[in-house]
Design a protein around this nucleic acid. Structure first.
Lengths: 139, 139
DNA sequence: TTACTTGCAAATGCTTTGCGAGCCG
DNA sequence: CGGCTCGCAAAGCATTTGCAAGTAA
């Protein structure tokens, strides 16, 4: 997983006190989950009482533009973010618990590129989310 | 493509004047595109000046619950809807023009089910969107 | 210094909801 | 009649923005 703070400052983004704090928070939280803006704000604010939620919104947008974090928008409405990881992955959401699982599948990636190409497009981005419920029995 | 009005009344949804109008509008607009709530409202309101946007919101939610239309949420923020079609399909969005193309790919569908299963889940729903730009040159 | 940042509060934009009136069965 | 619907305006929520004061380089 990428160090958000490091990557952004390397790319020349002016790193203020608040941005450093928010970057750290996102890097930490990404280990375990996929925090939404409010959760990032709560944790950042715990470390620095002067961080406002407006700054969090402005900062995550910047980090995303700098390619340090990725924005996720599942069916729950809120925007979530995660630090960019080495390998791309997609998500499976447990619709009963909200739990988010990550997975990678090269086959799907390849087919997507092919499908886009067949339609006359160059694939720039994609979004794949699976929604499921835990299987009760074996098989 | 499904006749929204017909399907809903068959399933026992009380079809009022407004719901009939909104159903017709969605059925018509689905032929060509993927209208958002405001576009549906504009067209419905043209046919019946008394239809309010609140009713459109309440009605599309109902139609969706009744399985007559599907809600799409692309990166532009707004919710879009389309009448359910016989075969499931996914979408490719031209990020330069906003144009929306439909495609089907059974391979991807199958892999999704398999991936979910391998993670211990029964696939209930999914979302796949490709974002691309038109290819300039051949190949 | 000097342009970039920030906190605050106000403003957005989309969507939902309370309420009293109206409609359908 | 009695519950479901509707239009309207107000309320909600997540997100964005104007502005004056503060800050990094």
């Amino acid at each position: 997983m990428i160090d958000v703070k490091k990557l952004c400052s390397e790319k020349g983004l002016r790193m203020t006190e608040q941005r450093n704090t928010i970057a750290d928070v996102i890097t930490e939280m990404s280990v375990e989950g996929h925090p939404d803006v409010n959760e990032i704000f709560l944790n950042a604010n715990k470390k620095d009482k002067n961080i406002s939620i407006a700054t969090v919104y402005r900062t995550v947008k910047l980090f995303e533009e700098y390619g340090a974090i990725e924005k996720l928008e599942f069916k729950d409405g809120r925007s979530r973010y995660e630090a960019i990881e080495a390998a791309h992955h997609d998500h499976l959401i447990d619709i009963e618990t909200g739990e988010i699982h990550e997975f990678t599948n090269d086959e799907i990636e390849a087919i997507q590129t092919r499908v886009a190409s067949e339609l006359g497009f160059k694939l720039v981005d994609h979004r794949l989310e699976l929604y499921g419920v835990k299987k009760k029995n074996k098989n």
